[in-house]
Design a binder for these strands. Structure first.
Lengths: 155, 155
DNA sequence: AGCGTCGGTCTCGAAAAGAGACCATCTCCG
DNA sequence: CGGAGATGGTCTCTTTTCGAGACCGACGCT
């Protein structure tokens, strides 16, 4: 019950990590982006224990990242990415870029290609004003409204 | 000992996650990017148990993500980001973007500003060939050299 | 009726996490 | 010299989480 309280901190990195930061959650989402929708498919693709998978899917549904519904044609359950879940894609692609660079000695196992050309999907960090690419060195953190709101609330 | 074997899979998302995917690792790295270098600072900023922190720092050093060294001036130990660690920044920023969007009802707690202008750091997924912005829908996975190498090796 | 598939649950032993005390080393300062 | 206070690091003990696999009820098919 201590760790979960990190979610109260006014930090947009910490808060998502309390939900996403564990052994399986991001792997489950990776499968979801690969088109997997069924309980048994997640389970056998990842080798995750069933009870664990049940927990994680439930948590993702609670957070509105996945939506559970009965499949139209048949009868079975389906877990699909919501908009909110869909927007997690850049996180996985950023991980992919790093993995391709540092953990793929034989080259990328998978190319994530642009459907309409031969290029590949690549994540970049840039300034939303001038468009310049950025690294950690170019960043200057500064208090924002979410922080001030929290300070105000606490008196 | 089963879960770790996921690192053998030819997938550039899975492999990093076996290292980074747990409660604390990415939070530790977030602190490192915020300039934290000392054991006690990580410990008290995050509230992580000391033994856990010891484990995680050790693992990050093993993987060459952090470098442990004696501080020049004093005597104490320092944990600093290597180049490899530094390159994890886009992952944290991608998480930040998502957190700002979905878990910051009062607005971003922190602005990550471009030092040289008023803009903010933002992660984008784009095609490295035509430069078009991309989403999951625009991506077509395709086998790459790392996958073929693994298939070859297994006969 | 019998079998297979489906999502989902239960149990139990093993692994990991949390807390907090404890340590050796070193520095500072009287 | 003799404490105090940092510092990074270790040890122990309890609680929580995880993993493996059996089990279950609903449904479909033949």
């Amino acid at each position: 019950m201590r760790y979960e309280q990190l979610a109260d901190l006014p930090c947009s990195i910490t808060r998502p990590l309390v939900v996403l930061g564990d052994r399986w959650t991001l792997l489950i989402l990776k499968e979801a982006f690969a088109g997997v929708r069924r309980f048994n498919a997640f389970q056998s693709n990842l080798g995750i224990p069933r009870s664990r998978l049940q927990d994680r899917l439930g948590r993702l549904v609670e957070h509105g990242i996945l939506v559970r519904q009965q499949a139209a044609d048949g009868d079975h359950a389906e877990y699909r990415l919501s908009r909110k879940g869909h927007d997690l894609y850049p996180i996985l692609m950023a991980i992919k870029d790093w993995g391709d660079t540092y953990m793929a000695p034989d080259g990328p196992p998978v190319h994530y290609r642009h459907r309409e050309c031969t290029g590949e999907a690549r994540v970049t960090l840039a300034c939303d004003c001038c468009g310049e690419p950025m690294t950690a060195h170019d960043v200057l953190p500064e208090a924002g409204p979410g922080l001030l709101a929290q300070v105000d609330a606490q008196g």
